[in-house]
Design a protein around this nucleic acid. Structure first.
Lengths: 216, 216
DNA sequence: GGAAAGCTGAAACGTGTGTTTGAAACCCGA
DNA sequence: TCGGGTTTCAAACACACGTTTCAGCTTTCC
């Protein structure tokens, strides 16, 4: 809108990117405003001027990351006529790329997501669940339901849905441990796709076991 | 050793328990010494006097929690003649009880473990991996190897091992999200065992898929 | 050219942190 | 009862945090 100097938008953008990097690296609580503005080559007052507060800056980062997420590779939606196993395979690959990919289309989305999942920022949790975690869970639930056939009884269906989620997100959550154990999570697109294939095989076989059980 | 008053050991113990509760609740970084000593009804200088520093107190909490862990229910070790599927079922049940159980034999172990997994405390990560994460991973690897039969090629075996781990620990890691999504992780022993049964079925079926694949 | 708006800079504010100090209070053995 | 080691306490330390202030600079518009 403004025809003013580029410096406004430039500083604001540098601030956003530096904040994204820092928030993704250490999470909201542990990130320091001074570290962010130093990385951005700006002054502390800039965050107040351009965004209002550290919290508002964090929300702006989330908004940006979410926008990048959906624009770079939208969530695959399973059609009714699709083979649900193939759909699950596609969805897991997409999900793991979303979570694990670094320094590509959405540099910090996965890491932000991991931090927010494990220790949610009060005030950001609800919007995160509504825009991100909720839709993903619903889509997986649809696919799992189609694979199993009839609805599993009680909480078992939800357990299975979150089991699939666990396979996708755990490499990110347990990143430091996995590195220490000599099995760092993949970062390149090819390696992520390979691992996603293994997880999809594992999940499909696992769910097929419940089909058989239900049909006994 | 000292035959002095109980107040020494009493304060020291109250400090340890209050610290355990706080560290488990918010993690090492976010926990404040003042909150701990307030909960313990002690003075700030008590942590220096009895433990040396906040970090040393944290290590003492870990040591205590680890001791409680192994004493209350030791890790099941699979024998060579055991049915590996049954062994996996037992192990998953034990692991999930370890991670999810609250306010019972080991009140904070699971939560400490979750925090340390996701955002490790520098200096405590190595001892945690050596004493806790490493042995668990090795035991699961043994069982998985026996189920699959011949070793899967490349990184696939490790992927499957950590897939099993993911099923067990994710309910704890994603706790807040799961609550928001209306599917809080179980806390009672019976509910944990039920969920562990589902996860074991899922894992065994999933791994059996790789047996078939390998034998093709 | 001058005034107004936009933007940045250094410094300080208030609060919270982990840690340290040194003097009281306490307890126990002699 | 006294002395000496043991344990507590309030106070302050130095530092880091997010936030605020306001002077000074730049840019834009009339």
């Amino acid at each position: 809108m403004s025809k003013r100097s580029d410096s406004h938008d430039a500083t604001k953008a540098r601030l956003l990117f530096a904040a994204g990097e820092e928030f993704a690296r250490v999470g909201f609580g542990a990130a320091s405003v001074r570290a962010i503005v130093d990385a951005a080559g700006a002054n502390v007052s800039a965050v107040k001027y351009h965004y209002g507060s550290k919290t508002d800056l964090y929300l702006a980062v989330w908004e940006f990351a979410a926008k990048q997420m959906v624009s770079s590779e939208p969530m695959p939606v399973v059609e009714d006529f699709d083979d649900p196993r193939q759909a699950l395979r596609r969805f897991i690959a997409w999900f793991m790329r979303l979570v694990l990919t670094e320094s590509e289309e959405h540099p910090w989305a996965g890491q932000l997501l991991a931090h927010e999942t494990v220790s949610p920022t009060p005030g950001a949790l609800d919007v995160f669940v509504a825009n991100c975690a909720g839709p993903i869970k619903d889509e997986i639930a649809r696919i799992v339901k189609k694979i199993i056939g009839r609805p599993a009884r009680g909480k078992t269906l939800d357990d299975l849905v979150f089991a699939v989620v666990a396979l996708c997100v755990n490499p990110k959550h347990s990143r430091e441990i996995l590195i220490k154990l000599g099995h760092p999570p993949p970062t390149t697109r090819a390696a992520i796709n390979r691992m996603a294939g293994v997880m999809a095989d594992f999940a499909i076989s696992g769910l097929d076991g419940f089909v058989a059980e239900e049909d006994r």
